[in-house]
Design a protein around this nucleic acid. Structure first.
Length: 883
RNA sequence: GCCCGGGUGGCGGAAUUGGUAGACGCGCUGGACUCAAAAUCCAGUUCUGGCAACAGAGUGCGGGUUCGAUUCCCGCCCCGGGCACCA
């Protein structure tokens, strides 16, 4: 009997669609399970084999959970704003909405052909005005929220207390004060600008030589009015929240590093001859005795004031040169330190000594106070700088743990030591401070206490996380619901959605303006009072739509509210979120931020959106390269005796694993696989390749392997001659229940590769046995169905059942079939397994020892030796120790 | 440089986390069926030696703990990912 997947699969896909099999249930009596995929950007290239990997995994779990009696929410949608559609529009004039629609249709067709059990009635699209109306609505919430540092939560802006001294200054001052507290604010931001492309570029798009990655033209620094979000206000909450999440530790670490919390202290240094103080931030206040100079960033506001007339021209020159450098230049590690002396000195508050103040670009204005105290003996960067500019290096921490050579060098100021030790030269009786002999932890505690008591400084916390630049000069994004009035006032347009205007041209405007600045009619607004205004022309970045889409799936067609709170309360949080690791920081951090704001405002009921996160590993492909590393297109490779050769030059090639790419001609199109082997084979193969979270290479031969399995399973189970009524064979029964148990626990742990292996083992057994009972066959159909749903349904119906098995209960593994009477003990001598012996499972240890001693093979391993000990681990192993 | 992963047959990968290393699949070898091939089925397949029984070696490398280590500890090497002058 032929396995006609090309008939079976479309038949069942049609059945599911017509019967709305996977519509999300609307009774809330059962437990819920919300299982979410990271929704795709619908590119023109169509589905990549990487997409079905995560989708199949979540589909298996969804189908399994339904059978386990859960209400499952398993939706799909499109993250459809983005640059490619806009660039295509610039080239062809085709409206991005048209391109987007075509691509979505293609993605939907491809995804449906895989038999994934999405509730298509909940499909969403970020570019749909019915969707982005609510993205704009959330922006308004952000704009109207401030962060209360006392309560550590976001609150409505109407509740913001305005200090009396601000109120006295008048309405404008009050407005400014409020604007300074909003989570969304509009301000000058320094950005990279490419005049050729007429757009801002991200730091990553600027090459080391200061040219734009895309066009090669130089980029410039530009101050542009931009929207920014005050995500750092939530830094602490975003770190704390990670602890209770069931996420990969690596992802949590990445988020922690990105947020970059550090504990330290701010210290004030008296500036000689100015009557002013210079404040620094340091994580090592304990090394204050070793501070032999100070450094301020070139952008520091006090530079002008600090620089002495005789040094002015050199400092100005340095600052100008620094301003031209890209961030990349300034942060490149290999680069030598540069800097210039201001001519000014400050007083080290513990030693009372004068130390020089330098300007150097290794100090960044955006972190801490933009100024540091430099302790060359105990900071590698300061050490490097001090050596270059001949600044004294004073060791104040004896590296007691270091090897002698190194210790000598450190003590002599010839090497740098950043680890713990015991303080030396760290006391000043006049000032009442003594750290000598303490360790780092005690030292920090002591000095911070002293600084605070003397009013010279205080303990502080710093974060690396910066304000989020939230606007782009693009057409194909969400418009901001914002109007800039001629008198300078900024107000919201709460008549949502604010739609995108139709445009003739999609090119950005001159001088840093978005393409929307070409939309004359749309742009101009006149208020009821006759006041004239101009709409915001920037649009939101692609992150905006993806920040909250998981919430809209809950109630996707609600035009009155973002969602019904009762539904949100039932479905949230997302129980499992599966997607690529490339979103470990940005998308997942931004989403968590928005979610926490919505939580503070009482809009959502959980303070974290995604309870469990799982990253699927990337699917790679085999590729070939010559022995000196030149890549060879896969169509020019032939295999002979397990080796690879270039078809034209005959050169021997090396097989490597690389990302799929057009140039290597090793891209696999899911459509082709479905056509050749069927959707069930594609699903099964992607799950069988290896652990879900690891990167692994595609192999066509591997697809054939699982296809063979489905063929064999179909040939046996679809043939009713092999199915009988009566008592099941004991061995089959035992294996069946072992398989149920194994598949169940593997699904729960997302270990689909071994689940499939156990299904194969069972299949191999029944093929050998030749027949099974109908009960066994139906059970097999049910446990196979989450993986290969089309074949599962087909078999289920062959046995006379009607309709889908999608809501059939998951079979229970019966322990009584799993019990063993005997155990085959591996017997080892000195840890080396020699033979096996079968013994009853409940045989006492003493009897087991006796049985081993008396075993016929035992004497040959004892020749000339004596038995020291016999170790028996019941039903595990026997080890005889001899010597 | 720092922070995470990972290194197991010819290949993708198993191993209930200290207890039989190599499940399952691919590939390969031999056989059956066939005029032949494909497909299918059966047997074998970590390496070395041996017809075999069996013996020795073996989870990146070097040590250690243990009756016993792929698993735990110490020190290295290599591969992948992230961050990168954050004071």
């Amino acid at each position: 009997m032929e396995y006609k997947f090309w008939e079976i699969e479309p038949k069942w896909q049609q059945y599911w669609e017509e019967n709305r099999t996977f519509r999300t249930p609307e009774d809330f009596s059962k437990p819920k399970y919300y299982i979410l995929d990271m929704f795709p950007y619908p590119s023109a290239a169509g589905l990549h084999v990487g997409h079905p990997e995560g989708y199949t995994a979540t589909d298996i779990l969804s189908r399994y959970k339904r059978m386990k009696g859960f209400n499952v929410l398993h939706p799909m949608g499109w993250d459809a704003f983005g640059l490619p559609a806009e660039q295509y529009a610039m080239q062809t004039g085709t409206h991005p909405a048209v391109t987007t629609q075509d691509n979505c249709d293609n993605f939907r067709r491809q995804i449906k052909s895989l038999g994934l059990s999405y509730d298509w009635e909940r499909e969403i699209n970020t570019t749909d005005p019915k969707y982005f109306k609510w993205t704009q609505w959330i922006f308004i919430q952000l704009y109207n929220t401030w962060f209360d540092p006392e309560l550590k939560k976001g609150r409505p802006i109407s509740e913001l207390p305005v200090p009396a001294e601000i109120q006295q200054k008048g309405a404008k001052a009050v407005q400014e004060y409020i604007a300074g507290k909003r989570l969304a604010y509009y301000d000058n931001a320094q950005v990279w600008w490419c005049q050729s492309c007429r757009t801002v570029c991200a730091n990553e798009e600027v090459l080391t030589d200061g040219s734009h990655e895309k066009c090669g033209h130089p980029v410039v620094r530009k101050n542009l009015k931009q929207w920014l979000l005050r995500i750092p206000h939530y830094a602490e909450r975003l770190i704390e929240g990670l602890d209770k999440l069931d996420w990969p530790e690596g992802v949590k670490d990445m988020q922690r590093n990105w947020i970059g919390k550090s504990k330290g202290a701010e210290v004030d240094f008296e500036i000689t001859g100015l009557g002013e103080k210079l404040r620094v931030y340091t994580t090592r206040p304990d090394t204050l005795f070793g501070a032999t100079y100070m450094v301020i960033s070139p952008e520091h506001p006090m530079v002008e004031q600090l620089v002495t007339p005789e040094n002015k021209s050199r400092v100005d020159e340095y600052i100008y040169a620094a301003s031209l450098k890209s961030d990349l230049d300034r942060t490149e590690l290999a680069k030598e330190k540069t800097g210039v002396f201001t001519g000014r000195y400050a007083i080290n508050p513990v030693t009372g000594q004068e130390i020089p103040i330098w300007v150097a670009d290794y100090v960044l204005m955006g972190y801490g106070t933009g100024a540091i105290m430099a302790v060359p003996a105990h900071d590698t960067r300061d050490f490097e700088f001090a050596e270059k500019f001949n600044i004294p290096i004073v060791c104040i921490l004896d590296p007691t743990e270091a090897e002698n050579d190194l210790r000598e060098k450190v003590l002599a100021g010839k090497a740098c030591w950043t680890e713990d030790g015991a303080y030396v030269n760290s006391a000043n009786p006049e000032k009442g401070i003594d750290l000598n002999g303490l360790n780092k932890e005690k030292g920090i505690e002591t000095i911070v206490g002293w600084l605070q008591a003397k009013g010279l400084g205080k303990a502080t916390v710093n974060f690396k996380l910066r304000d989020w630049l939230f606007s782009r000069q693009r057409y194909w994004g969400e418009p901001f619901p914002v109007i800039h009035w001629e008198d300078g006032e900024v107000s919201l347009d709460e008549n949502l959605p604010v739609l995108l205007p139709e445009l003739e041209k999609y090119e950005p405007g001159e001088g840093g303006e978005s393409p929307l600045s070409n939309a004359r009619e749309w742009l101009q607004v006149t208020g009821p009072d006759g006041r004239r205004g101009r709409r915001e022309t920037n649009t939101m970045p692609q992150w905006a739509g993806s920040c909250w889409y998981y919430l809209r799936y809950i109630d996707p067609n609600n035009d009155e509210q973002i969602f019904d709170p009762k539904l949100e309360n039932y479905w949230m949080p997302v129980d499992l979120y599966v997607g690529g690791a490339e979103h470990a920081v940005l998308h997942l951090l931004y989403s968590r931020f928005w979610h926490k704001v919505l939580f503070d405002l009482g809009i959502v009921s959980t303070d974290e959106p995604f309870a469990k996160l799982y990253n699927q590993g990337m699917i790679l492909a085999f590729a070939y390269e010559t022995l000196n590393g030149a890549k060879v297109s896969s169509d020019l490779v032939e295999e002979r005796d397990g080796k690879y050769f270039h078809t034209q030059t005959g050169e021997e090639l090396r097989q490597i694993v690389a990302k799929m790419s057009k140039s290597l001609k090793n891209v696999v199109n899911p459509d082709d696989v479905v056509k050749k082997y069927g959707a069930d084979s594609l699903r099964l193969y992607e799950m069988f390749m290896g652990p879900l979270d690891e990167r692994k290479p595609w192999s066509d031969a591997g697809v054939k392997g699982v296809y063979n399995f489905l063929n064999r399973a179909h040939r046996f189970f679809a043939d009713t001659n092999n199915i009988f009524e009566g008592e099941e064979d004991a061995e089959i029964l035992k294996q069946l229940h072992q398989t149920i148990k194994k598949v169940e626990s593997d699904i729960e742990n997302l270990k689909f590769n071994t689940a499939i292996a156990s299904l194969m083992v069972f299949n191999n057994l029944v093929l050998k046995k030749g027949k099974v009972t109908q009960t066994t066959a139906e059970t097999f159909a049910r446990i196979l169905a989450p993986f290969a749903p089309h074949l599962g349904e087909e078999l289920w119906n062959i046995y006379g059942n009607c309709g889908s098995l999608a809501y059939q209960p998951w079979p229970a593994a019966d322990e009584k079939f799993l019990k063993e009477d005997t155990f085959e003990y591996p017997v080892s001598f000195n840890g080396k397994m020699r033979f096996k012996m079968e013994l009853p499972v409940d045989l006492p240890v003493s009897e087991v020892e006796k049985a081993v001693t008396e075993h016929e093979k035992t004497p040959r391993y004892l020749e000339g030796k004596t038995v020291r000990k016999i170790i028996v681990v019941p039903n595990k192993i026997i080890n005889v120790v001899v010597s």
